[in-house]
Nucleic acid binder design. Structure first.
Ligand code: SF4
Ligand code: SF4
Lengths: 162, 162
DNA sequence: TAATAACGGATAAAATATATCCGTTATTAT
DNA sequence: ATAATAACGGATATATTTTATCCGTTATTA
């Protein structure tokens, strides 16, 4: 019951992209360098973000990833689901149909109470994640990032776009 | 991001135990037979339920598992946490401390906005699971289980306690 | 006293998550 | 034009976690 590491990586990448000047893009390689994570693996994750319509991509020199829409239109749920999918965390294997009391599958028209409660909980989890947007995270980041780190990051970014 | 199968198994086991006559117990072997799951593995899970204080155990012939408290005092969350633990599904690896913009760890006193939003979502998920009790599941089961299956189950159980 | 059953520890097997590699295509700076 | 860059997809490889089994011990009871 754990979200993949890729979620943390890509959400961080998006907050970084959100702070970039318009038209600027960052390659998977550069993003990986910034966060010190495996470049090839991060690239795979960013491709999922691309398929989910969260980021745009541009091939060739000076290409890379940029946000596909305004930060306030990208929710935390969007990013989580792009990496970890949309299936409910509870997987029902229909064990009620097995064993000495099992009856024919067609007797079960609806998921049982257990599955329903689990799905409801999954739903409120997703609803909560939908409440936070990338813009929110960006604002929190701007407010809470230590000045020293902010300077370092700006310096590093400037070195790229010159 | 998936709950272990053990959750489905043990919740089902608890609903079965909830329907048993007082003082009756069912062994892991019998429970496994009823649900057609691997006996040894289910036994491991039931031991976790025991450690969590959800079921009582009795050794020796006619021993086995029984509920440790009234069904209405056992929540779905209790059972989920007994098997899958209490740690938040989002694991923060503190990548903000790494890479060219990283600064000393002591600069970060609080978890960032991403981690906070994730934990909040995890919290509402658990809160929702806490709303459903084993008694609720039992009632739903009694109402929705096909009569044919109910009869089979009762017959099977009767065969054990004679 | 023999059978039963929980318990804990040690593996073993299977499945999934993490990570790397490579060839292809598109793009751009030179 | 050409060389370098970068996303993309597919094919692995490696590590970790989940699932499953096995065994010796202790407690209980018929
Ligand atoms: S009874 Fe509910 S949880 Fe159990 S197998 Fe059926 S749908 Fe799944
Ligand atoms: S910034 Fe937040 S999510 Fe990222 S590593 Fe730090 S606490 Fe974790």
């Amino acid at each position: 019951m754990r979200l993949s590491e890729g979620v943390e990586w890509t959400v961080h990448c998006c907050t970084l992209l959100a702070g970039l000047p318009p038209d600027a893009a960052l390659s998977a390689k550069k993003l990986a360098e910034f966060f010190d994570v495996p470049p090839d693996y991060l690239a795979k994750h960013m491709q999922q973000m691309s398929k989910a319509g969260i980021v745009n991509t541009k091939k060739g020199p000076n290409g890379g990833y940029s946000l596909a829409k305004p930060a306030r239109d990208i929710t935390l749920l969007d990013m989580v689901e792009a990496i970890d999918g949309r299936v409910c965390s509870f997987k029902c294997t229909e064990i009620r149909q097995r064993g000495p009391s099992g009856v024919s599958p067609c007797s079960y028209k609806t998921p049982c109470g257990i599955a329903r409660a689990m799905r409801k909980a999954d739903q409120v989890w997703r609803d909560e994640l939908r409440k936070t947007t990338l813009a929110d995270l960006q604002i929190i980041g701007l407010r809470e990032t230590p000045p020293e780190q902010m300077n370092k990051a700006i310096t590093w970014l400037k070195g790229l776009f010159t």
